[in-house]
């Protein structure tokens, strides 16, 4: 099947635009954080004055008069989310155009795969923003995703091309899409768990991470959000591994052979299994469980980059 160069060019254009739009969204979220903190400080000062300068300052805020319009930080944050949606649409367009250009699924090499994982992460993030009060985390979530997308598009970029015979199987649709969505979800969950650790530490001792923690939602909300996303990702990861094993049986002659990618997938799976168990174990709830989720995040990133770039295994395609 010949490559449609026009589509391929528009795909490249889309991904660059998506990166630019994500960056703007990131700036807006950062501004939301910054202004939000100033507003918080102002209110704290007011409260301190109202309380006659004595006692704990922020314990009870005076009820502010109902605002005529949304406060500036919230408006900025909402703009950030809107831009993220726009970025995601451009990002999606770049993948769809890649697929059209090559007449195959748009995750046939490292560039496309990481790009798809980033899109899955952005979508997971947008779904969470809709369901949970976590919008303030925008800057923290978009930063790692942006960095990964940049690495994929600048350092690991591969021209639109057909894939090798080993990848020509309908299992590439099933196995890789499950891996993409699960990885995307885990990336977001890991960032949120890391922020949970910060917030929980601050709640235990207000002196720690005072600046950062002030911009974060309640630790309970963070914990719940991270758990929800992980619980969504874990069955998908399990399914992805099983689908991979079925594919490996027909492509490589065995369903499991401890290929580096298989091994790290196994390690991630064990870590996430431990995370789910740790939330039901006395003494492990809270910060410890969150660290386990962060370890899962580390394993996911390790699997994305290290396994393909440093080791050589059967999952190496198109040079990496």
């Amino acid at each position: 099947m010949p490559i449609n160069q026009t589509y391929a060019q528009y795909s490249d254009l889309s991904v660059v635009s998506a990166m630019a739009v994500y960056f703007l969204a990131l700036l807006l979220h950062a501004a939301e954080s910054a202004f939000g903190r100033q507003a918080l400080k102002r209110e704290a000062k007011l409260a301190a004055v109202a309380a006659g300068g004595g006692g704990t300052a922020v314990a009870e805020r005076p009820a502010p008069p109902p605002p005529r319009e949304r406060p500036l930080p919230e408006r900025l944050g909402r703009m950030g989310v809107a831009l993220t949606v726009l970025g995601a649409l451009l990002h999606l367009a770049s993948l769809v155009l890649r697929g059209l250009a090559t007449s195959r699924v748009p995750w046939g090499n490292m560039y496309e795969y990481i790009s798809a994982v980033c899109l899955a992460a952005v979508v997971a993030w947008l779904v969470m923003v809709r369901r949970h009060p976590v919008r303030q985390l925008g800057a923290f979530v978009l930063t790692p995703i942006g960095i990964m997308l940049f690495i994929a598009a600048k350092l690991l970029y591969a021209e639109a091309a057909p894939v090798v015979p080993a990848l020509r199987s309908y299992w590439i649709v099933i196995h890789v899409s499950a891996a993409v969505i699960a990885s995307g979800a885990f990336l977001v969950a890991g960032v949120i768990s890391l922020l949970y650790v910060v917030k929980a530490s601050n709640e235990a001792n207000p002196k720690r991470f005072a600046g950062l923690a002030a911009r974060l939602p309640e630790s309970a909300a963070l914990d719940k959000t991270a758990y929800r996303v992980s619980v969504f990702g874990f069955p998908l990861l399990t399914f992805g591994i099983i689908a991979g094993a079925v594919w490996a049986e027909s492509a490589w002659g065995r369903y499991w052979g401890w290929d580096p990618k298989e091994t790290v997938a196994f390690i991630s799976w064990v870590i996430y299994a431990a995370y789910l168990h740790s939330r039901a174990t006395a003494g492990w709830r809270g910060t410890r469980a969150a660290w386990v989720n962060v370890a899962g995040f580390a394993a996911t990133v390790f699997n994305l980059f290290f396994v393909n770039l440093v080791t050589t295994g059967l999952h190496s395609y198109a040079g990496v």
Binding site: G257, W258, P260, T263, V264, A273, A274, H277, G283, A299
Partner: peptide, 27 residues
């Protein structure tokens, strides 16, 4: 105990790690 199972899970993940970081006879 669940706590032991958790520790064993971590050990399992840790023990599999050399399988990626070091070359393997089977591969």
């Amino acid at each position: 105990a669940m706590r032991t199972a958790l520790v064993l899970l971590f050990l399992l993940a840790l023990a599999a790690l050399p399988g990626v970081l070091l070359p393997q006879y089977s591969l």
